[in-house]
Design a protein around this nucleic acid. Structure first.
Lengths: 271, 271
DNA sequence: GAATAATATTCTATATATTGAATATCTGGT
DNA sequence: ACCAGATATTCAATATATAGAATATTATTC
């Protein structure tokens, strides 16, 4: 490891850009630190954090101290290492408490996961950047696919991604450039994908058969929280071969019906 | 409602103080906003947020924009209202994933809640300010006491508070001034409380019989994560009359034993 | 539907958060 | 136990985030 290591990862570039444009760069720095600490296996020291994010150590120190004062970051005075603090749980609790979508989907997810022996997810769509899993129901019978509340995925990936592309109302150019950054086990070509998005728009739900994860089939149906504002999705995931046996159509129908019910309950309607 | 309303709540004063002393005030502002949005029933507009926290609207706007960019806050362009975003779940997920205490306590909590028909909590002690519930197990048989992961309590309250006072190594003056800010259903006098803290130190666990919540008995035992660093507690709560029937001592012994096991597993030891 | 009040947003001077170098402190190897 | 190499922390100059007034937008009242 030489003294001069220019490490400018993708994350760094994004952070650097945000910092330039923002009128409150300390917050971008804080968020980057929180995410880094979240990803990290072990607590990190000041230098490690500053280097990983391309921050000035002294600035980084001040941000860390503020985060410690706010109880988002824990500081061990003995080792001088930083890690996430339990305070982040409190925010999550508040979010869950106030969110009606989670309350409304949970029974639907439980019902569908039982009926079709699949893992059901409720996801929140956050702009064109990400979707976040906010509710889960596992069937419990078969091999369980791991998926946890709080998991983040790129917006356009898998079946849900096709829904977002189909119903999000984003310009083609934007979609294409983001499509190119996605990682799939078995990537579709852009043309294939566009065709699938078109099909999603036509039939009202999206399907991913082994593209995102080999052997896994994903079906997703969109939920609107107000006119034209695509906000959530109901998602079913299962081993492709197992789903083939029972047949996809009944699941797709049930999923679509659930999503439509939820849209009504949330006071929304499709664009 | 007159035009001139000078609202300087306790929270405001604390925020104001933090802002002066911090080298990264934007982060204190951001944290205050996140907590406010967490508490709020409905999404809030810019003015409402700025007024509640004593912030300058323009500054508040810049902070909010940064928080929206970082996906911690959701912005509805139609209503121009802000609320917590699902992104906060992601941080919580990471925290839970990395935290070994939660993994280690959960089976203990489940075992004890079953054995004694009580609600068991694992709590994280954050300085002298707060404790945060990080794991829960309900017995399921009797009337369930509500308690959720992420709940925050003042550090010195109830049975756990007596543990923190007894084993935290904080100066008496500090303890007394904080004791005076606590809210109990049936507050003990300072002298009574000091006696109970003394007893807690002697017997190794704390008890609260109806002081914090009328009719509810709470027992708490401390867990250390390193030499002298009080970091967690195992807590049992139940209806006082029900606990009387079975007798407290067996529960207290089991609790103390669990806490000691956990201390060893975490590599800590009492001061 | 016009007028008014309230709210959100832009803009600019200035107090200050950030930087980068200097200093203190810790860590690991011999 | 000492010394190097690394890490954490302080400090003063300056680039810039912030406050407050000015403007644009939205909501409310008559």
């Amino acid at each position: 490891m030489t003294t001069r290591t220019r490490r400018t990862s993708e994350e760094d570039r994004k952070l650097a850009k945000t910092l330039k444009e923002s009128k409150a760069p300390a917050i971008s720095r804080a968020a980057a630190i929180l995410r880094l600490l979240g990803k990290s296996e072990a607590p990190l020291g000041l230098q490690a954090i500053a280097r990983a994010l391309g921050l000035v150590p002294s600035t980084c120190l001040y941000v860390l101290r503020a985060l410690v004062a706010e109880e988002f970051v824990a500081f061990d005075p003995d080792t001088k290492r930083y890690s996430l603090e339990a305070g982040v749980l409190t925010l999550a609790r508040h979010w869950l408490k106030r969110n009606q979508f989670t309350d409304l989907v949970q029974p639907e997810l439980d019902r569908l996961s039982q009926a079709f022996d699949v893992t059901m997810l409720g996801v929140n769509i956050v702009g064109l950047d990400h979707m976040i899993v906010v509710a889960v129901s596992q069937s419990g019978n078969n091999f369980q696919l791991s998926a946890q509340i709080g998991s983040r995925f790129p917006a356009l990936i898998s079946a849900t991604g096709r829904c977002i592309a189909a119903f999000g109302g984003y310009p083609d150019a934007e979609l294409e450039s983001r499509f190119n950054t996605l990682r799939w086990d078995d990537p579709p070509t852009l043309d294939e994908w566009k065709g699938q998005v078109e099909q999603t728009r036509a039939q009202g739900f999206g399907v991913d058969e082994g593209n995102y994860i080999t052997g896994v089939t994903v079906v997703a149906a969109p939920v609107w929280k107000s006119r034209g504002a695509l906000s959530h999705a109901v998602v079913a995931t299962g081993i492709g071969s197992a789903l083939k046996r029972t047949g996809l159509p009944p699941l797709q129908d049930a999923l679509l019906s659930s999503a439509q019910t939820l849209t009504v309950q949330l006071g929304g309607e499709p664009a």
